[in-house]
Deep mutational scan, measured.
Amino acid sequence: NQASVVANQLIPISTHLTLVMMRSEVVTPVGIPAEDIPRLVSMQVNRAVPLGTTLMPDMVKGYA
């Protein structure tokens, strides 16, 4: 099972991601792979992401 990136807190819209905001967890459905966490740092979310939500490629500007 592959770990995905999950929000560690509420991430407001247009926030630049930091390591503190993300954790890796095995979830269904599978989202952005956990090994991409370093790549996600300083990218922006294009919507509010609630605590515990799996980050999907379409939620992060410039990821997909």
Rank of each mutant, 00 (worst) to 15 (best):
S24Y: 07
N46M: 13
T54W: 03
A48R: 14
V41M: 06
V20N: 15
M21E: 02
A34R: 06
V45C: 05
L17Y: 03
R39N: 13
H16F: 14
L51W: 10
T54I: 09
L19W: 14
D58K: 13
Q9I: 10
G52A: 06
L17A: 00
E35T: 15
A48G: 10
P12K: 11
V27C: 06
P57E: 07
H16Q: 14
A48H: 13
M22C: 04
V27Y: 03
T15V: 08
A64V: 12
L19M: 14
Q9M: 14
L51K: 12
S42G: 15
A64P: 10
V30I: 13
M59S: 05
T18F: 03
E35N: 14
Q44G: 04
P29V: 05
L10C: 10
V49Q: 02
Q9E: 10
E35L: 10
E25W: 08
Q2P: 12
D36Q: 14
R23E: 04
V20D: 15
S42A: 13
A48P: 12
T18Y: 03
T53M: 12
A3H: 12
T15D: 04
V5I: 09
E25C: 07
G62A: 07
Q9A: 11
I11A: 01
P12Y: 05
L10S: 15
Q44P: 05
M43K: 11
K61G: 08
A48K: 12
A3Y: 12
E25M: 13
Q44E: 14
E35R: 14
V5Y: 02
Y63D: 03
V27D: 01
N8S: 15
T54M: 03
V20A: 15
V26I: 14
M56E: 07
I32P: 00
Q9D: 08
R23C: 06
T18H: 05
Q2A: 14
L19K: 11
V60Y: 01
V27G: 02
M22P: 00
I11E: 00
A7I: 04
V5M: 02
T53N: 08
M21S: 03
A7T: 09
H16I: 13
D36P: 01
V6Y: 02
P57Y: 07
H16E: 10
T18M: 10
G31R: 00
D58M: 10
I37H: 02
L17P: 00
S24M: 10
G52K: 02
V26M: 11
T28V: 14
V20T: 15
S42C: 07
